[in-house]
């Protein structure tokens, strides 16, 4: 038996898979169900890897150890004025995803990346562009905790950009970026929801 025989043995060793038409149909259905159709769906997808909570109220000036309205201390925080003039304080912290416990090293790398990021100058223009179709299609639903105001969209964009940066740092060191999530709490001095006509 020669080298070609070894290749043949390896080729036919592949475990069998479920090759019936019904699986193709079911895979297509899963793909359709996974596609975000609006910003709310995008948020659902994002929530798989982190937690973003917005609140109205008085935006306190963010200090180095901002106590968020969720009751935890932020590891990094910023106060920014959105393009509609709304002032928002945002706090962030690195956390472990419950599904995939990260290594202590991955958590440290993620925190270092968060602390090394200048929250005032991080570029969110690419994320805003990416969000644009979803924001345009977003429906304003009474009672929904999130609506597409300038402040909430820009807050969301900062959260996404920061999440990507932290996860990229974790992946660059050979750890699973999905084991890390970024929690965020945002408080703004203006309305975060669009008024709904009675």
């Amino acid at each position: 038996m020669d080298d070609r025989m070894l290749t043949r043995l390896l080729d036919v060793s592949a475990p069998a898979t479920t090759d019936v038409d019904e699986v193709d149909t079911a895979v297509s259905a899963v793909a359709r169900a996974t596609r975000p159709r609006s910003t709310r769906r995008t948020l659902t997808a994002i929530a798989a890897g982190g937690a973003l909570v917005l609140a109205t109220g008085t935006a306190a000036a963010a200090g180095p150890q901002l106590l968020t309205h969720l009751g935890w201390f932020a590891e990094a925080s910023t106060t920014q004025v959105a393009s509609d003039g709304t002032q928002c304080a945002q706090g962030f912290r690195v956390a472990a995803t419950p599904e995939i416990p990260p290594s202590p090293e991955a958590l440290t790398i993620a925190r270092d990346a968060l602390l090394a990021t200048d929250l005032e100058s991080i570029d969110i223009s690419g994320v805003l562009e990416w969000l644009e179709p979803d924001v345009a299609a977003a429906e304003v639903v009474e009672g929904e905790p999130w609506s597409p105001t300038a402040a909430s969209v820009e807050g969301l964009a900062l959260y996404i950009a920061l999440s990507e940066r932290v996860r990229e740092a974790v992946a660059a060191e050979g750890f699973d970026p999905q084991s890390i999530q970024l929690d965020a709490a945002t408080e703004c001095d203006g309305p975060l929801t669009v008024p709904v006509a009675p």
Binding site: V12, P15, A16, T17, T18, D19, V20, E22, V23, A26, V27, A29, V30, R32, A33, P98, E99, I100
Partner: peptide, 25 residues
């Protein structure tokens, strides 16, 4: 190791993969 709620579509695919015998050579 994942947990959490599955969509109906994923449940349907899971059921298919469980129930359909693979083509054993």
């Amino acid at each position: 190791r994942r947990s959490g709620r599955r969509s109906a579509e994923v449940e349907r695919l899971r059921a298919l993969l469980e129930a359909t015998p693979t083509d054993l050579h």
